[in-house]
């Protein structure tokens, strides 16, 4: 048995080519890559002022904070509910406006429907909308229209338009061109081609994308409040600054429940459309 195995081994070594050796340049490159990674990690550690010891030194604070958070205080629940509704309202209108703007912009940035120069222009514009975070837009609009929910709506609107237009245009680019040619063949206009040939194909996906963005906009809208964009985030910020941790905890619980519920409902609806 051993002999046979040995035989097989010998035949293998005779017929098999030598295993490949990693070239020196590749190994050197890997070494440099590892070194660079370590340098970046160390540099970033100091740049971010990482200091785990701080957590120990301030353990007293952490304990109070933790204890208060474990005793949520729902006394002012009606205030929180109102603030939560305001957050939802911000998310709703931010999303609705973005979808309204995203429909033409999405179509005009689809290579298979719009002329190249148009696609290029609209895409760069949408890139800019997406590149800048909602929070930054919120700060800009607060400067323009003052603190409050309207600034939040505008911030979500601009950023979400960039996202939605991109998602919408990708859906348009994936369509079957045949129905569009069917419309073109009857002598329909460009707009009629879009309405009868493109929209029926992308509608389910578009609805799904819009709902998905609404979900994430509810989350974003809570954060927007923290910089002054209205809603529950604003209330949360006030309780934190007043060291009212039990109330802050109640607000967080409410946010978590609302967002989870909405996600569940929205996911259900989205499944229906795909």
């Amino acid at each position: 048995m051993f002999a046979a195995a040995d035989d097989a081994h010998r035949t293998a070594t005779r017929t098999m080519p030598a295993p490949p050796v990693t070239p020196l340049t590749t190994r050197l490159f890997r070494l440099v890559l590892a070194a660079v990674t370590v340098v970046i990690l160390v540099a970033a550690w100091y740049e971010a002022e990482m200091n785990p010891a701080q957590l120990w030194r301030d353990s007293g604070n952490m304990a109070t904070l933790g204890a208060d958070f474990l005793r949520p205080d729902f006394t002012d629940w009606d205030v929180y509910v109102n603030a939560m509704l305001e957050t939802l309202a911000i998310a709703i209108w931010g999303t609705v406006l973005a979808v309204i703007a995203g429909i033409p912009l999405g179509i005009l940035s689809a290579e298979n429907v719009a002329p190249h120069w148009m696609v290029f222009t609209v895409r760069r514009l949408m890139d800019a909308c997406r590149a800048i975070n909602e929070l930054v837009f919120a700060l800009i609009f607060i400067a323009a229209v003052g603190l409050g929910p309207f600034a939040g709506v505008l911030a979500l609107f601009i950023h979400t338009t960039g996202v939605v237009a991109k998602l919408f245009s990708e859906a348009v680019e994936a369509i079957d061109p045949a129905p569009v040619e069917g419309i073109r063949g009857t002598g329909g206009t460009w707009l009629q081609e879009v309405i009868y040939g493109v929209l029926p194909q992308v509608m389910p996906l578009w609805i799904s994308y819009a709902l998905y963005r609404f979900e994430s906009n509810v989350r974003s809208a809570t954060v927007l409040g923290i910089v002054g964009g209205g809603g529950i985030g604003m209330t949360f910020n006030e309780t934190m600054r007043g060291f009212l941790y039990s109330q802050a905890s109640a607000i967080l619980i409410m946010v978590v429940i609302t967002v989870s519920l909405l996600d569940m409902v929205s996911q259900r609806i989205r499944k229906k459309f795909i």
Binding site: A178, P179, E181, I183, T186, Q192
Partner: peptide, 28 residues
């Protein structure tokens, strides 16, 4: 194009629209 009717191998209809709407498109 208005007086040229096209019929394709893969039908080229808008599948999600009603049959009637697909035919009405001819009137566009």
């Amino acid at each position: 194009r208005r007086h040229i009717g096209l019929v394709f191998q893969q039908f080229a209809l808008s599948g999600r629209l009603s049959v009637l709407t697909n035919v009405l498109v001819g009137a566009l």
